[in-house]
Structures are given as structure tokens and as C-alpha cells.
Simulated scan of single mutants.
Amino acid sequence: MPFTLATWNINSVRLREGLVARLMAEEAPDILCLQECKSPVDKIPLEQFRALGYHHIVARGQKGYNGVAILSKLPIEDIGGHDLVDLGHARHVAGRLENGVTIHNFYVPAGGDVPDREVNVKFGQKLDYLTQMRDLFHADRPEKSILVGDLNIAPREDDVWNHKQLLKIVSHTPIEVEHLAQTQDAGAWVDITRQDIPAGPLYSWWSYRAADWDAADKGRRLDHIWATPDISNAAYGSRVLRSARGWDQPSDHAPVFATFDL
């Protein structure tokens, strides 16, 4: 049975409740994974989402920061979440569908502005978070699983608007890319988006600082959908809904989609 999944850093689910509802109404993914919800779970505005068919939720939240949620039309069981690096942050939740597929929703720390852990604690936390993700997948090799989220790293040269200019910018530095690659290798994760769209510029984030984000097009692919090898060949239809970046009072991220026939 095919199901479509989307991942979106919403940058406040309460502030952008209307945008989430618009995505649900217009695109109707079966499963919508949100990051940076910035809300305790009991304050997530579920009434409108349920009216649109999203009756199931697994989530971790906190007031004003972080927060991850999986909103689903399909029944989904909460199977836990990890507080990596003991930050006390709501950055991971996992759910299992009735067909046995596990969905991991991650929000990796952004890492601050300076790519040097000696002077920037946040950058060190980001690298340590990725290391613990790697170790998690080494210790418990995932099967029949999908990993989505704002991983806050654009790994490939064509995942950023200018590879050379961004080599010293947090999100595209070689050390971050290497840490992400080790995490991906530990779970043998397949980058579904790039499996479907193997070449060419592809972005999911555009800074609020640009006067005209669309014309400048200085984007980065920070949002990802991965799958384990046992189900990766069941994936198709990957796309980025770039137009959502231009909606009224938007998130600086656009939703990323993929469909799985399982």
C-alpha cells in the first residue's frame, strides 16, 4: 500500500497552524513530520489537523524551542525518543506504523555561527549529537525504517548555492559533512531524495535575511528523507514543495516529500 510522507521544519506549529493545515488540505501527505514545533505537546493545535484526517500523533515538545511531531492519517505507535548528548531537548521521536515501518523524526542542532567547537559550544554539541546518532545505529542496526528531519547539514556540492563560499559556513563545513556521512553509513541509510533526484541543485531552506529569497535562490538542502536498504527501492516521487517558502509568513524551510509502496 503506498503512503506519502512529508518532512517540514515549521518554525512554530502554533504560529503557523494555518500553513500546516494548508499543506494537509492541498497536498494531503499520509504522514507529516514536523520539526522546531516550539510547543509543549499538549499545546499543539490538533483540532484543525484532526478535522483534516490527521487523527494520530506521536511527539516530543518543550516550550518555545525545538520539538518534533509525527502527524498521521495512519495509526502509529509511539516507540520512544532519544535525548542525545543529554541536552534535555525535544529533538527526536520515533513511531511504528501497522505495516511494521519505523519512522524516526530528528531535529539536529543547528550548531551556531562559528564552525569551531573550541569557541562555540553549540557547534560541539552538533558534532556530538551526530556522533551519538552514529553510535545508536551501530549498536542497533535499523531495519524497515525511514529517517526524516531537519538534519541541518547540506552534504553535497549541489545541495548548496555555492560550494566554495559555504565551505566555512556552518551546515556545509567538511567536518559536519563527514559526521553526517558516518551517521548515514552506520545505518546503511539511503538518501531517498537523491536516489530519486540524483543530480542538480536542490534546496529546502532559504534564509529570511534575503530581500527576495526566490530571486536570490541562495538555498541549502538541510531537510532529508532516508530509508534502510530493505525498503529503499520502494520509494519514489521525491520532491521539494518550494512554493511553500513563499506562503504568507512562511517557515524558512520548505516541505520535502517521498512516497513508499510497502
Rank of each mutant, 00 (worst) to 15 (best):
L180S: 06
K63S: 03
T183D: 09
W161P: 02
K43W: 08
S238V: 10
P229F: 11
G200K: 07
V119P: 03
K38W: 00
Q48I: 12
V101H: 08
I31A: 02
V256F: 08
P2R: 13
H92Q: 05
G237Y: 10
N152M: 13
H55G: 10
K218Y: 02
G64T: 03
Y54F: 09
D252Y: 10
S204A: 08
W213S: 10
A235D: 09
Y54V: 01
Q62N: 01
L19I: 11
A6I: 03
M1C: 09
D158L: 12
P45S: 00
V121N: 13
D230G: 09
A59N: 01
D217H: 13
Y107M: 06
L241N: 13
K73W: 08
A6M: 06
D159R: 09
F106W: 15
L180R: 06
M133I: 15
P40G: 00
T173G: 07
N66R: 04
V41C: 00
R22W: 01
E143T: 15
D248P: 09
D158G: 08
L127K: 09
C33V: 00
G112T: 07
N162S: 15
R194G: 05
D248N: 15
P29A: 08
A59E: 00
F106H: 13
V177H: 06
E176C: 09
D158K: 12
D42K: 05
C37V: 07
F3S: 03
P229D: 11
A210R: 11
S39L: 00
F137V: 09
L222S: 03
P115N: 06
F3T: 02
W226A: 08
R16M: 05
D83T: 07
P198K: 01
Q62Y: 01
E77A: 14
A154H: 04
A244K: 05
H179S: 15
R194M: 04
P229M: 07
T131G: 10
N162G: 12
D30H: 01
D196R: 04
L167H: 11
I57W: 04
A6V: 01
G18F: 01
W205Q: 03
D78P: 04
K122I: 06
R245V: 10
H82V: 11
W213V: 03
S72P: 03
I146S: 04
D261V: 13
A139N: 14
A90N: 08
A186Y: 01
V160R: 05
Q132L: 11
